[in-house]
């Protein structure tokens, strides 16, 4: 009660010292700016795991069925683990494999054409990769295939390259 009777005459304006807080804030800010290292953004590439058994003979094409077409890209690596040459063929087709050299853009265009030809029934892609091929190129091949429109991609080890 006695406090209430003091009235406004004794009102003291509190002086909050903001400068030390600002100093400290600037120091913290400087520390975080100097130690800040933005980490690169990571993402995932979806894939199908290799089938239980590889090979097993060539399947016959299914011209009248609704089964998706299956394309096989065979990749041979050089001794440095880079792409030496690639070829593409449709599983079971009589036509010989088409040579794509080591050009990833040519590979992507070939995939786009293959998908375009089979847009009504869809298509699967199997990458038969040389065991020496570096992961960087495996991802590049999958990346180009995804960009070409394939969603079902299965990387497997080419026979005789283990």
């Amino acid at each position: 009660m006695s406090r209430r009777h003091r009235g406004h005459a004794e009102h003291i304006d509190p002086d909050l010292p903001i400068t030390p807080m600002l100093d400290m804030s600037f120091q913290l800010l400087a520390f975080f700016i100097m130690t800040f290292k933005p980490s690169p953004t990571e993402g995932q590439l979806a894939m199908q795991l290799p089938p239980p058994e590889q090979g097993g003979g060539a399947a016959m094409p299914d011209p009248f069925g609704d089964k998706p077409a299956k394309f096989i890209v065979r990749v041979v690596a050089n001794n440095n683990g880079q792409i030496a040459r690639m070829s593409i063929k449709e599983e079971g087709a009589a036509a010989p494999p088409i040579d794509l050299g080591a050009d990833l853009n040519r590979y992507m265009n070939a995939l786009k054409e293959s998908l375009q030809r089979n847009k009504d029934k869809g298509a699967k892609l199997t990458l038969e990769l040389d065991g020496r091929l570096l992961h960087e190129y495996v991802v590049a091949l999958m990346d180009h295939a995804l960009r070409a429109g394939f969603s079902d991609i299965s990387p497997i080890l080419a026979s005789g390259s283990d």
């Binding site: 894939m47 239980p52 683990g81 065991g131 020496r132």
Partner: peptide
């Protein structure tokens, strides 16, 4: 990025044998 595919493939096979169906590869955007 410098791993040979034969090494990665062995691990992919191990994942499949255990029964993992959803396997993805990580990359930097």
């Amino acid at each position: 990025r410098e791993t040979e595919f034969r090494r990665t493939f062995e691990i992919m096979n191990a994942c499949r044998r255990v029964g993992y169906e959803r396997v993805q590869l990580r990359a930097i955007l």
